[in-house]
Simulated scan of single mutants.
Amino acid sequence: MLFYHSTSSKNKNKIIKSSMIVPTKFDITKYLDVILPNFDGTLKVPEIVKGQRMVPYLGEGVYCFDNYNSAASYQVNNDVVTIEYDDKCEKIDLDNPIFLIKLDNYLNEEFDDELNKKFLDEDVKLGYKVLKNTILYYIYDEKNFEKVFPQMFAIIIFLLYDFRNKEEPDVFFRKFSVCDSPYFVIKNERKIESLC
């Protein structure tokens, strides 16, 4: 399977030379620690908190596309790295209605129990509950949800996997309104077979 990563020519040369691609890093736990104690359910949460970069839409990982043209036109003066990836990978489509139903089920049926087992301050737990309810409220109103809070999908991935200490699937993808093609994020870099 092929993915295409948009980058500068200078970075492309480094990636090819080293046979390594540096994933986007982001400490979502630190971000949530800052916003949750005062989270009131409004969707206007900060895209950035002090000392961190902007929240990446799908969290940490290697961002790419599944077609060359989308990667080539993603930014001005860019180059494209082709990523050969293991065909036997687990991919999760965040637009898939079945995924949204599973998310709804988890948040309604399991989330509060898991939250209560965590050693967190009560104001942070309350923030998580408000966050859960915000996700549930907007989960089926995606277009409005994404317009105001596209980084919520990084938080959703965190809640479903890291928060529960579950291993993430290899790849997530979703179509965002800012791009013609779906964004892909590679979470499992060990399945990258080659870079060229």
Rank of each mutant, 00 (worst) to 15 (best):
residue 109 E to F: 11
residue 97 P to N: 11
residue 60 E to A: 12
residue 64 C to Q: 04
residue 1 M to D: 01
residue 39 F to E: 10
residue 89 C to N: 13
residue 16 I to H: 09
residue 136 L to V: 09
residue 14 K to Q: 05
residue 127 G to S: 05
residue 84 E to H: 14
residue 110 E to W: 07
residue 141 D to Q: 12
residue 40 D to C: 10
residue 122 E to D: 15
residue 94 L to S: 11
residue 60 E to M: 11
residue 65 F to I: 05
residue 82 T to F: 03
residue 195 L to A: 13
residue 7 T to E: 00
residue 188 N to F: 02
residue 14 K to G: 02
residue 87 D to W: 01
residue 32 L to M: 13
residue 115 L to H: 12
residue 136 L to H: 13
residue 135 I to W: 09
residue 74 Y to V: 00
residue 105 N to Y: 09
residue 135 I to N: 12
residue 144 N to F: 05
residue 90 E to H: 07
residue 194 S to G: 11
residue 158 F to S: 10
residue 64 C to S: 15
residue 160 L to Y: 12
residue 17 K to D: 06
residue 32 L to Q: 13
residue 1 M to L: 06
residue 2 L to R: 15
residue 187 K to S: 01
residue 116 N to W: 12
residue 109 E to Y: 14
residue 27 D to I: 02
residue 27 D to M: 04
residue 5 H to Y: 06
residue 56 P to W: 03
residue 167 E to Y: 09
residue 190 R to C: 04
residue 141 D to L: 11
residue 10 K to R: 10
residue 93 D to S: 08
residue 76 V to M: 06
residue 172 F to N: 00
residue 19 S to C: 05
residue 185 V to K: 04
residue 178 V to N: 15
residue 165 N to A: 06
residue 162 D to T: 13
residue 74 Y to L: 03
residue 156 I to T: 10
residue 147 K to C: 05
residue 41 G to L: 08
residue 133 N to T: 05
residue 133 N to W: 02
residue 72 A to K: 14
residue 152 M to G: 01
residue 39 F to C: 12
residue 107 L to Y: 06
residue 97 P to K: 11
residue 106 Y to V: 04
residue 88 K to H: 09
residue 103 L to Q: 15
residue 60 E to F: 00
residue 23 P to M: 04
residue 128 Y to I: 14
residue 95 D to A: 10
residue 72 A to C: 03
residue 107 L to K: 11
residue 45 V to R: 03
